[in-house]
Simulated assay, not measured.
Amino acid sequence: MPATVSTVRNVVTEVLTESTTAEIAVAAIVVAAALFAFGSIYRASSVRSTVLRACGLVLALVTLSIQVYRNGWLTSLDGPVTDWMVDHRSGALDQIAVAVTDLGSPVATALLGIACGALISWRARSVVPGLIVVGTVGAAAVASTVVKALVGRERPPTNIQVLLETDHSFPSGHVTGTAALFGIVVLVLSAHRTHAVKRLLMLLAVTVTIVVALTRLYLGVHWLTDVIAGAILATLAVTAGGAVFRFVEGRSKTNDRTSSASRDRALV
């Protein structure tokens, strides 16, 4: 199995990195950001909007993965950021960071995801929203595991880690899981809310994700590009989950209208 993963990784990297210079990497990130931004404001078609955002996120994740694997220019801030975090540690911050990272662990995220899914389904009187929440978080976790195996990045040196972790580093599973969970829960809960409430809930999700990302950097168990990639991957998962949720909701509304029309005709 390790040999197969190594072979796939080498083949993909050779195909995609022959001409990947710093300039091309930066251009790819700019294009990815433009696709995502345009998809976010494009209202003519929800399907096209989703596709544009997804394409931008995939392009950004692939570019960053290649740069990390090749130790490219986009990783140049990893070392300085980690060094700064290590230089500004304190006993109190250590305890806070450990507590936050424990709450954002993959196991804790999985349990919280199941609990949130069950609660949302109970309130909606439908299993669909809960399944979408659990499915989104699960898909993000699986994708994170696959990318970790393909990129195979080592974590920061063990002598600077507050909590010892030795598995692959890229992307951050904590950030991926946390962002995917809070993102899809916010998306489902805000479906019929006002714009002000939606923005407030989204701000909460972003804030929690940033806090978890900072603690992973502070503890010395991840590089900056690891947590960025985790956020990108989670956003991709939430984008896909949100598309499924909107599709199911649309089908449900259509069926309700059809049933209502049938009842009206029967009364006539």
Rank of each mutant, 00 (worst) to 15 (best):
A149P: 06
G250C: 07
A32M: 12
L233R: 02
V51G: 07
P157N: 08
G56L: 04
A143N: 11
V58L: 08
V128A: 15
L93S: 10
R246G: 02
S126C: 11
T21K: 02
Y69Q: 14
L189Y: 03
I120D: 00
P129N: 02
V197K: 07
P2K: 14
V268Y: 13
A213Q: 03
R265S: 13
L112T: 11
L150N: 03
T136P: 06
V5I: 12
N71E: 15
G56N: 00
S252N: 06
L201A: 13
S46T: 12
A196F: 11
G241R: 00
T20I: 10
A34T: 09
L150E: 03
V188Q: 12
V248N: 00
E154C: 05
S105K: 01
T239Y: 02
V238S: 05
F245K: 03
V31L: 11
L16T: 04
G39W: 00
V238I: 08
S260L: 11
V151E: 08
I96E: 13
L111E: 08
E18C: 00
L131Q: 06
V197E: 13
I120K: 01
S259K: 07
P129C: 02
V12R: 06
D94G: 09
W73D: 15
V208N: 07
A143I: 01
K148R: 11
E18P: 06
G117A: 01
L214I: 13
Y69D: 15
K253Y: 08
A139Q: 12
S46E: 15
G138A: 09
E249C: 10
A99I: 05
D256S: 13
H88M: 11
V212T: 04
E249N: 12
L201G: 08
S169M: 07
S65K: 06
T20Q: 09
D226S: 04
D78C: 03
V212F: 04
V268D: 12
L93V: 08
T176S: 09
G39E: 05
L201N: 09
S49D: 04
T21G: 11
L35R: 00
V162W: 01
F247A: 15
R263K: 14
E165A: 14
T225F: 06
G91P: 06
F38M: 09
N255T: 15
S90F: 01
W122H: 08
A234Y: 05
A97T: 05
T258L: 12
L181H: 05
G241C: 07
N10Q: 11
A32H: 09
F36N: 02
